[in-house]
Design a protein around this nucleic acid. Structure first.
Lengths: 237, 237
DNA sequence: GTCAATAAGATTGTTGACAATCCTACACTC
DNA sequence: GAGTGTAGGATTGTCAACAATCTTATTGAC
């Protein structure tokens, strides 16, 4: 039987899977989450090898689930797997950092433009304004800027949640995680945080006024400034 | 010992790995390539389940390498794996198709803008002009438009190769593969191919003149038109 | 006839063992 | 002393068997 064009999109074999997230995460996912945390926290540094045996012993499982966990981390770019050589924490060159930030700039622009243009944008405002208020407080207090990066992450989480484009938010999540340590670097001076705050405030205004163009510009500038600052510090070193 | 900022980017454990692609691809990679071809060709349709046992028997290996192959395909979005339920060919909803095209529009715009602004852009022109010439011939001949989509793919391959941003081109490759069947749909009428050709010619001009802005616009329009046409056909069905 | 409970079969998840390859240290040559 | 070749250990790759879970078919009640 020749199928008509009408069936280009076929029924899903697992229709309910779209909504229902698995209640108990699988073993590989649990292991991946643990290792991911260690990479994000810096406990595992760039270039460090990750031995299957060691992780398996630590979690008291066999190497099978560990291999799958490493594959999951590779999907997120946190780990690089080379045939016959195993896994290591991904180590980015300066150029690669620049490239990822460039992609983030453009995709963050798309995300924030769509949010500013969406009808539901006003419902989002209070939560965002509260977080930006926190940013402003940190900047006003001066000091080490403790909590600034964390609040920025929370803001990005809020915006990702608000996006109807789920594929977009998942790519953004992944890229943000890969450049986490460099984002920290790019926000390590009071001057940079002031600059960053300005762009966040511009975004709030753009969302309030429904100005997609302005939202996109603020987002792109925000990420590109962060990129430039991070790379300057990297190259000075 | 407290490490200085200078070591944020550490030496790679496998420095030569960046250049040297493995000569003989691993077993999982070979299996993944075969299955990938079947999905691209339509032999495996959306929603179709892929049983580990069946693939393993066919390639005369155990289920281990097959599982890894399916993980690789999942990374590219070609396959969806659900816990305890196995793998199936990814089936996209209309909304998801729209989302992916939207991301492709923006990232293609970034890619083509950077190419048009690069110093090496003129060396690229002859190859691109030749392919666009092929597109023009197909359009002129009318008929079924055989080879149009394939030539567009070749063009995208050329542009991806020319991009210095390797992460960008790998994301674009993946997204293009995921929407391959919908791209075909979006270029299935002579009218649409004429429209598409116009944007390709605009891109050639933009690259020749080094006009990044125009290159970006042409790319975004090209992909968005393709998206609109594909979705219209999907919804009519 | 429709629906729910149940049992059998099918399929994925995990394990431990073995094979193949890679890395390191050491001896040897020049 | 520098470089090369070679063993040994370490590590990843693959396999086959078993356990856990899911799907399907059958039976029974209403």
């Amino acid at each position: 039987m020749v199928r008509a064009m009408a069936t280009v999109i076929e029924a899903r074999a697992f229709p309910e899977a779209r909504a229902a997230a698995p209640l108990t995460r699988s073993l590989p996912e649990q292991i991946a989450a643990q290792v991911s945390r260690r990479i994000a926290s810096g406990a595992y540094g760039p270039g460090q090898r990750i031995l299957e045996q060691a992780i398996a012993a630590e979690f008291a499982v066999s190497r099978g689930p560990v291999r799958e966990a490493l594959r999951l981390l590779e999907k997120d770019g946190l780990v690089t797997i080379l045939p016959r050589r195993g896994a290591q924490v991904t180590s980015l060159s300066v150029d690669e950092v620049r490239e990822i930030f460039e992609i983030r700039a453009v995709l963050n622009g798309l995300r924030d433009r769509r949010i500013a243009e969406s009808p539901a944008r006003l419902a989002l405002l209070p939560a965002i304004e509260a977080e930006v208020g926190t940013l402003a407080r940190v900047v006003r207090e001066g000091g080490e800027g403790a909590g600034y990066v964390e609040t920025v992450f929370e803001l990005n989480r809020l915006l990702n949640e608000a996006t109807t484009n789920k594929r977009l938010s998942s790519i953004l999540d992944s890229l943000a995680l890969q450049t986490l340590r460099y984002s920290r670097l790019g926000l390590s001076t009071p001057e940079r945080r002031r600059q960053s705050l300005k762009h966040w405030q511009q975004l709030v205004r753009a969302i309030r006024e429904g100005d997609g163009e302005a939202a996109q510009e603020a987002a792109e500038k925000r990420v590109r400034d962060s990129r430039d600052a991070a790379i300057k510090l990297l190259q000075k070193a």
